[in-house]
């Protein structure tokens, strides 16, 4: 469903990778590895349509990525996108409404990530890991979005948090979703089709 061919990206005029091609089918997990500066984030941002690749094409269901694609893709970047002034629940509710869906089950999603008791706390009192959990709570509400692009989903999370994300991804893959993630840690997500992509060598 997600395919790239001869993809090349650069950052500040410096080539990061070139000739990158992969195909990810329904239920497939792609883990992007590589040392710092190898271009993992740049690749994910290109896949999300945020930055334009220097060369090559990205196709979703056989078509170049465009407006329809954004409906079928969830991108969670390094920055959690959590506002200090809003409560945890308001933050999650806004993120869900921005992506064009109803925010009915937010309480349950927070529970899934183990932060239900923080729901009414302004986000400025949260730790780095708790912020990350607020951002990741969207995963629990995004079952119907086929493609998940997760940039360092494990960063700043503790063991429990990592387990929640792992379970959410495994469940998504089991129902035929696609997951692309970058991580420096070991990824032991149960997946029928796991691919690893090594950048920077």
């Amino acid at each position: 469903m997600l395919e790239t061919s001869a993809l090349a990206c650069e950052r500040g005029g410096l080539p990061l990778f070139a000739g990158l091609g992969f195909a990810l089918a329904a239920g497939g997990l792609l883990r992007v590895r590589g040392p710092n500066g190898a271009g993992k984030t740049t690749l994910l941002r290109a896949l999300a349509g945020l930055s334009r690749p220097a060369a090559g094409t990205i196709r979703w269901r056989g078509n170049p990525i465009g407006d329809d694609y954004r409906r079928e893709m969830l991108f969670l970047g390094h920055a959690p996108g959590v506002k200090d002034e809003l409560t945890v629940l308001e933050n999650l509710g806004f993120a869900v409404r921005l992506s064009g869906r109803e925010n009915g089950e937010c309480g349950k999603a927070l529970e899934r990530l183990g932060i239900a008791r923080l729901a009414d706390l302004p986000a400025r009192y949260l730790s780095q890991g708790q912020r990350k959990r607020v951002a990741l709570a969207r995963l629990a509400l995004s079952a119907e979005i086929p493609l998940w692009l997760l940039d360092e989903p494990y960063a700043a999370l503790d063991v429990d948090g990592i387990a929640s994300v792992r379970d959410l991804c495994a469940a998504h893959l089991a129902r035929g979703g696609l997951v692309v993630l970058t991580s420096h840690q070991d990824v032991d997500i149960a997946a029928a089709a796991m691919q690893a992509l090594d950048l920077g060598n």
Binding site: L50, A79, K83, D84
Partner: peptide
Amino acid sequence: AADYADGTLEQMLVAPQPLALV
């Protein structure tokens, strides 16, 4: 600036809604 710094702006750009509306 605030949305840019905390990553919300990124989410606005990848959202399916037209950015002009946001």
